[in-house]
Write a protein that binds this DNA or RNA. Structure first.
Length: 881
RNA sequence: GGGCGCGUAGCUCAGUGGGAGAGCACUCGCCUUACAAGCGAGGGGUCGCAGGUUCGAAACCUGCCGCGCCCACCA
């Protein structure tokens, strides 16, 4: 390409002075999708790289947590795609059992209807209709963020295929005896009218009242749930408790009921708590249930599913929270309340979906026997088949899988996967597989319940790939490569995917690496909450600052496993960074930078070119390491500083005089600048895909060879590979000296209040000794120094470094006091440095025990400090007194 | 009650055995034709406290203080 032909200049002319994300993003995204850039193929020869998206709720909309989660996944996927992997990022949604049913039920309530008015079939139809009309808003929002997901493979947990996977796994677990039905105390939500698993219950410290009730002269028990006494079927004491041993085997009359109940001895009772006597209500308390089992006590249910008292008598029909004070009042009237502790703060469970106080309730439910599954899930991490990043968080994972309770999987809902079990007239129980005919005939009925929504999400990594069929997708893309999610659903989801993945896929793990991030928080580290008013909507930031800025802000704060604080200021900073890239590329285009042809050989490169190319190789290597360690924040930091400090602040500034001068040097610089930007944009593409693709196509042209299957888009351009041959320590050292000289002169100009435009005559001494003599014109040009003329009269001497000093003629008086103060300060610092180094070297213990490289380093440090002192001394002497 | 983690500049955080760092904020000077969403320069920290290990500690150990999170069936 000759100097006069620069088609890029036309491109530059079309670029406005500021990056307008709104103008670029929509069009870029639709182009990517239309060209099928996100599509993965099972037939490909390329090695697979797979991520399945943590399926958002069909009722959900994009919040900052998703934006963070998706940014990390998109960064991984986009980089692997550029590296030549068959990269599949599979999107989809979760049917979100209770959440979705609640949404539709609220809609019905507005019409004055309940789901029972419609009936099961019509209600489920209605939910599907809701999904078609208003569900999945988040999918559109993912496009705004730039998620490079394969839309052709979008899945939903209630799809036919996934439902078949659910039924297959259920049947297998049932046949293996790992699923069973039992009457147990479970967590019951009296509002949602369904059972909940342990982890769907959130405990908070609530205020209550602990009352001590005298059942008889000898028997006093304490409780926070007085209403449950109606269901007491025993009183328990510790069998070794001297005070009460004689009572074991006797009976006591239960107040308000007239029933006589036994006193039993049970190890569970803590003699040191309260009176050491416990009322036993097997139907309404998990501990009491176990005591009841051990002593063969009857379980007396005194409350219905809505928490209303059903025990016959004066309290029948009262809500549990009305019955409580009523019963306490009645007991008080009888003089049976011997003590009240109020307020009494204790942990109370709430429905994670609606906050209603959970009621322990005896009921017949389906459970997964988790012991063998959880052991396998733990072992897969213990033996290294699955890695958790950051590794510290594995402790939390083990704490969970090694102490897992059986999982209650049945839900008394209508929206979800219905339990595939039929009951016959003679008490038969038949579990039906997906390809089997269910039993029919008089008296047969199907189980009414559906499965916990997490049951189907636990199958997500393989049900989405076509399992139970042996599909090409499954063969190509399972196990998935990385799972990216927040540590908050380690238990809900990750551990269960591990259990079911290992089980259903015959011991093959669902993913190789689990990458955990934290929660997005505000700029003060506070949790985002509606009541606190600090919630930020990512779409708002995307509108105002662009998707790239939003992504960069999140990724830049994403330290492994840690919460991610964000603020609008930081997002503006990210927007500014995108704009910086924009303008750097604009500058390059206006000056004819290009990517055509080979890089000039080493003999044609200037030191400045060698320096920036060397820096680039370091950056490529660092970014690769940081990506492999899932250090998203460090990736961003490395590229931010390289782009802004090295490329924009130094290389572009150093290139300006060369480009202005024209000739062969300018031609070389145009090519090197094009190369550096080309590589930089590639490296940045995973985190800021829109602006980089826009700029890269302008720089490389639409017909550019993008490397791996690339034709005019950065998406499939080859990921940079560091070239050791381009590393150049000598050039880096030279430019470091140049930078010190320039910075010191600027420092002087700034301290002395010299106007930036004002030219000053100067004599630069010792550049040759420092090996940077060739850079004198560059230095002079950067800091506007004229040659020393015949009338040159130094009014200040700057001690820079090494042999370099700069004598300046400011053509006027300088602020001697300011310069002296500055030098004194520098001298004090150098003296301190020298003293510290000498103290170490004078210490025989240090010299004897410290490794030689460290000692050598200290010697060098001392030498530098002494040289500094000498130069500062000279400069001080040179100052007019 | 059990477990995990954190305390470094005004704010948010990197740094985990050998010269205290970044972003933002702050101060001063600049519209220097890529960019004022910018440029240049600068100030600012007894690394929570107290012991210990070490030639050497922000980092490793112990204790204390403060903060956070997760798990949990003391009625």
């Amino acid at each position: 390409m000759t100097e006069t032909q620069h088609p890029q200049r036309d491109a530059a002319a079309t670029l406005p002075a500021q990056y307008q994300p709104g103008e670029v993003e929509g069009r870029r995204y639709e182009k990517w999708v239309a060209e099928g850039r996100f599509r993965a193929s099972a037939d490909s020869d390329k090695p697979p790289f797979t991520i399945v998206i943590p399926p958002p709720n069909v009722t959900g909309s994009l919040h900052m947590g998703h934006a963070l989660d998706h940014t990390e996944q998109d960064m991984l996927i986009r980089r692997k795609r550029m590296q030549g992997f068959e990269a599949l990022w599979l999107p989809g949604m979760d049917h979100a059992g209770i959440a979705t049913q609640n949404v539709v039920e609220r809609q019905l309530a507005a019409e004055g209807l309940s789901r029972h008015d419609l009936g099961r079939e019509k209600f489920v139809e209605r939910v599907w209709q809701w999904k078609a009309e208003s569900g999945g808003a988040i999918l559109g929002q993912m496009r705004r963020l730039g998620d490079s997901v394969d839309w052709d493979r979008e899945r939903f947990t209630m799809d036919d295929g996934l439902s078949r996977a659910v039924q297959t796994v259920f049947k297998r677990l049932y046949d293996d005896g790992l699923i069973y039905r039992a009457e147990r105390i479970i967590n019951w939500c009296p509002r949602c009218l369904t059972a909940l698993s342990d982890i769907e219950v959130e405990h908070t410290d609530d205020e209550g009242e602990l009352v001590s009730i005298r059942y008889s002269d000898d028997v006093v028990v304490a409780t926070t749930r007085a209403e449950t006494m109606l269901g007491d079927t025993a009183v328990a004491v510790h069998p070794d408790d001297e005070r009460y041993r004689h009572l074991i085997g006797t009976e006591v009359e239960l107040p308000l009921t007239g029933r006589r109940i036994p006193i039993v001895g049970d190890e569970h009772v803590d003699p040191s708590f309260g009176t050491g006597m416990v009322k036993v209500t097997p139907a309404h308390d998990p501990n009491d249930f176990e005591i009841g089992q051990r002593h063969d006590l009857p379980s007396l249910t005194i409350m219905n599913e809505r928490g209303v008292i059903t025990a016959p008598g004066p309290f029948e029909g009262l809500d549990r929270f009305e019955a409580r004070p009523a019963i306490v009042a009645a007991l008080r009237e009888q003089g049976r309340i011997v003590a009240e502790k109020r307020p009494y703060v204790h942990a109370v469970g709430h429905c994670s979906r609606c906050r209603t106080t959970v009621e322990p309730r005896l009921s017949l439910q389906w459970f997964v026997n988790t012991a063998p599954l959880a052991r396998a899930a733990g072992d897969a991490v213990r033996d290294g088949r699955v890695r958790i990043e950051p590794a510290d968080l594995a402790k939390r994972y083990f704490a969970w899988v090694d102490n897992m309770h059986d999982w209650c999987i049945s839900r008394q809902l209508w929206w979800g996967h219905r339990i595939p079990v039929w009951y016959g007239p003679e008490g038969e129980v038949v579990c039906v597989g997906p390809d089997e005919e269910p039993p029919s005939g008089p008296g047969w009925r199907r189980d009414e319940d559906v499965l916990d929504t997490w049951f189907s999400s636990a199958l997500w990594p393989f049900s989405t790939l076509g399992w139970p069929d042996q599909t090409p997708d499954l063969a190509k893309f399972y196990p998935t490569s990385v799972l990216v999610t927040g540590y908050d659903i380690l238990f809900f989801w990750v551990a269960r995917m591990m259990m079911f993945g290992l089980y259903a896929m015959d011991g093959r793990q669902p993913f190789d690496v689990i990458v955990l991030h934290g929660m997005v928080r505000d700029q003060f580290g506070k949790k985002m909450s509606k009541s606190f008013g600090n919630v930020v909507d990512p779409l708002d930031w995307i509108d105002r600052y662009g998707a790239d800025a939003t992504r960069f802000t999140l990724a830049r704060g994403a330290n492994p496993g840690a919460d991610v604080p964000v603020s609008e200021d930081w997002c503006q900073g990210s927007r500014n960074f995108c704009n910086k890239l924009w303008n750097a590329t604009r500058f390059a285009l206006m000056n004819g930078a290009h990517v055509a042809g080979e890089l000039p050989g080493p003999e044609r490169l200037s030191t400045v070119d060698r320096w920036i190319l060397s820096r680039l190789q370091h950056v490529i290597a660092e970014v690769d390491e940081q990506f492999e360690a899932y250090e998203f924040a460090k990736v961003c930091d490395t590229l931010y500083h390289f782009a802004w400090d090295d490329v924009c602040d130094w290389y572009v500034e150093l290139a300006k005089p060369v480009l202005g001068a024209g000739g062969e040097a300018a031609a070389t610089t145009r090519r090197v600048l094009g190369h550096v930007l080309d590589q930089l944009l590639r490296l940045l593409h995973p985190v800021v895909p829109f602006v980089t693709d826009e700029l890269w196509t302008a720089l490389a042209g639409d017909g550019a060879d993008g490397g791996v299957g690339g034709n005019g888009t950065l998406l499939t351009a080859a990921w940079p590979v560091a070239e050791p041959a381009l590393l150049n320590d000598a050039a880096e050292a030279e430019i470091a000296v140049l930078q010190r000289v320039v910075t010191e002169i600027r420092r002087f100009r700034s301290d002395q209040g010299l106007r930036p435009g004002q030219r000053v005559a100067a004599r630069l001494d010792g550049l040759a000794g420092a090996g940077v003599a060739a850079h004198e014109p560059l230095i002079r040009s950067l800091v506007r120094l004229d040659e020393a003329g015949p009338d040159f009269q130094a009014s200040a001497t700057l001690a820079v470094s090494g042999e370099v000093s700069v004598a300046l003629d400011t053509r006027g008086s300088i602020d001697v006091a300011a310069e002296r103060a500055r030098l004194e300060k520098d001298r004090a610092a150098a003296e301190k440095e020298a003293a510290q180094a000498r103290a170490k070297l004078d210490n025989p213990a240090f010299v004897g025990k410290a490794p030689e490289p460290v000692v050598q380093k200290i010697r060098e440090r001392l030498a530098v400090a002494e040289a500094d002192l000498a130069r500062i001394g000279t400069a001080l002497e040179a100052l007019p007194s």
